[in-house]
């Protein structure tokens, strides 16, 4: 399986993602934001970080960079595109997934482990995964998912919610919402489920001696689904 990680000026999880993808068998290539063509890939990842210093709105400038037209075309032709954290913010700015990510409700930068419930397994990202709840890491200032009522209805009708913040047992409650996100949404799909945007970082949970292994579960499962 071939993957590509896009590096924008200010990306800082691009190399972590490269290490994680390679660990589980992806042949990964790093792609610079000013490139025009994507290398032949089965998966494109928009990594976390602070692209363009988060100027204007997080992800807004990166969403207009040269490589993004190829990424959008790739997604529209059914290619798998995953945006993590700042990558999720970039995805919403391209319009590939609906909604926006606002400033966290209590205005603090949140950096901690959270539990997320997998809300839809009928897709290439979460199909066949045994767990219903994953422990992953979040680190963001703008992860407060928001969309209009009409968009929310459409998202729910099309089962586009991928993961929700929850507790260890999988209960989705306001108490377990770290950032004020609408309905505890931590990640969503596009309608076709080939594009996934999520705030948590699976690439930070791939080594039991450093963190946890739930990121490994997700990435191992992902490459198996793609084979």
């Amino acid at each position: 399986m071939k993957s590509a990680v896009i590096t924008f000026p200010g990306s800082n999880c691009d190399r972590d993602m490269d290490v994680a993808l390679k660990k589980f068998g992806f042949k990964n290539k790093m792609v610079w934001h000013q490139d025009v063509e994507l290398p032949k890939s089965d998966l494109v990842v928009l990594p976390g970080g602070f692209s363009y210093g988060d100027y204007l709105r997080c992800g807004s400038m990166a969403s207009k960079s040269k490589i993004m037209q190829s990424v959008i075309n790739f997604a529209n032709s059914g290619g798998m595109v995953m945006g993590i954290c700042n990558g999720f913010q970039i995805l919403v700015e391209t319009g590939l997934v609906p909604g926006v990510l606002l400033r966290n409700k209590y205005l603090e930068f949140i950096c901690k482990n959270v539990f997320v419930k997998i809300s839809n397994k009928d897709n290439a990202y979460f199909k066949n995964i045994n767990n219903n709840v994953l422990e992953l890491h979040i680190a963001h200032n703008e992860g407060n998912y928001f969309c209009t009522n009409d968009q929310l209805k459409e998202i729910e009708d099309n089962a586009q919610v991928a993961i929700n913040y929850c507790d260890q047992s999988g209960e989705i409650k306001d108490t377990f919402n770290p950032n004020g996100s609408l309905n505890n949404i931590a990640g969503i799909f596009n309608k076709e489920k080939n594009v996934l945007g999520m705030m948590p970082h699976p690439e930070r949970m791939i080594d039991p001696s450093l963190s946890g292994e739930d990121g490994s579960l997700f990435l191992k499962n992902l490459i198996n689904n793609m084979k």
């Binding site: 807004s60 400038m61 207009k64 926006v100 606002l102 928001f146 969309c147 209009t148």
Partner: peptide, 9 residues
């Protein structure tokens, strides 16, 4: 429309 504002919000 294209950059300065995000019309969702």
């Amino acid at each position: 429309k294209k950059l300065l504002a995000n019309l969702v919000i």
